[in-house]
Amino acid sequence: MFNVKHLTKTFGNSPVVNDISFTLEPGNCVALLGANGAGKTTTLRMLAGLLKPSNGSIELEGMKPNADRREHIGYLPQYPVFHSWMTGKEFLVYVGQLANLTKANALDRADYFLERVGIPEAKNQRIGKYSGGMKQRLGIAQAMIHQPTMIMLDEPVSSLDPIGRREVLTLMEELKQQTTILFSTHILSDAEEISDGLLLMHQGKIVESGSLHELRNKHQTAKINLSFHELNQNYVDILKGLPGIADCFIEREELVCIVEDTEQARDELLNIVTTNQYPLTKFEVSRTSLEDLFMKVVKQ
């Protein structure tokens, strides 16, 4: 339903978002994952209509490319700022009416969404007195107020404490049933927890995308982790040459071998360790995770 083609944004001479294309399916929750400065916020702002693309097109199903999509989109910026002199309910009614709801309708929905995001007791309090978590939830409520076909959340949990983040993640999990969600994060575990799909961004480009399931299958390779009492750099060179082993490197005090044939590699490794009497303390056969993929991409 969302069709993005060759989207580019240049500030000065440097492209912050560099020719990205993707589509979003209705009813999905997709995470835009990337390190700080990867271009996530810029992308979301262009989708929300706050920034004009330097190039490329954004098309919402049933609309012309680059048409005014704001009616169908809810957006929560990374650091939402409200009129602190208004109460939570007043603010929701205000933005609801700006989204073309009638006053009565806006009042009803404000109550409903304040309840939905879990801050009904604070509805008549000035927003200036809200905590960070409450503001974030009010932010989600204002994005949902006109029941848009999709909502975009920019780092919705990054600035929250562990309890707040748990609450907001649970809320997003629930909202997923009602609307399409695109959210950005730099934390893989958040993405893995609630999203169906992933867009991995790095230096303004989308370097990998797909459903979590697909990505896991595609990028999982077998590996063997070895720990030694004393890790010797020579081991790397020696083990690298063994049959069945594709690559070998040291990561976090452990020797990691990416293997082609698990059984063969295991036998070879154990064999050489015993013959040379290496001080082995741990031997583990495992699979690479999305974390490894993320780190690999980000480190490049």
Partner: peptide, 8 residues
Amino acid sequence: ELILVKPV
């Protein structure tokens, strides 16, 4: 940002 992201 919050105001102008609504269809105003």
